[in-house]
């Protein structure tokens, strides 16, 4: 197996995540696209770990840490979206323009 096939797959998934973050209106959907980007990064980390053949399996350990941080990020993110929804009656990111002049 070549390393490039995994790297290209990761790059494609990451680009799709960027597309989703830029186009989605609903805040939950934006968070979903961020998850897609994190999954792409995970693929890169594990593929590089297997290519280098690290004795400590550093890439896989980092991937596990990434999963933990992503879970924390989803929890906090959804709590913030829930709070915005309670206060504004909407989870639409276009309407969150209080800081705009």
């Amino acid at each position: 197996m070549l390393i490039n096939q995994f790297l290209l797959l990761g790059a494609a998934l990451f680009a799709m995540g960027v597309y989703g973050v830029l186009t989605r209106r609903n805040a939950v959907m934006v968070l979903l696209s961020v998850e897609l980007m994190l999954a792409a990064v995970n693929i890169n980390l594990v593929a590089f770990d297997r290519m280098v053949g690290d004795q400590l399996a550093g890439g896989q350990v980092f991937a596990l840490f990434l999963v933990a941080v992503a879970a924390a990020e989803v929890g906090i993110g959804l709590a913030i979206i829930l709070l915005i929804f309670r206060n504004r009656r909407s989870a639409n990111v276009d309407e969150l323009d209080l800081l705009k002049l």
């Binding site: 197996m1 070549l2 490039n4 790297l7 290209l8 790059a11 990451f14 960027v18 597309y19 830029l22």
Partner: peptide, 30 residues
Amino acid sequence: VRVAAAVVSFVLFALIGGAMLAEFEGAAIP
């Protein structure tokens, strides 16, 4: 907006993918 976002993400994919292809040409996973 979707067309603009598609252009942005495609350019990003081309940059990342091109850099990876150039750097790890032929590198195999043992």
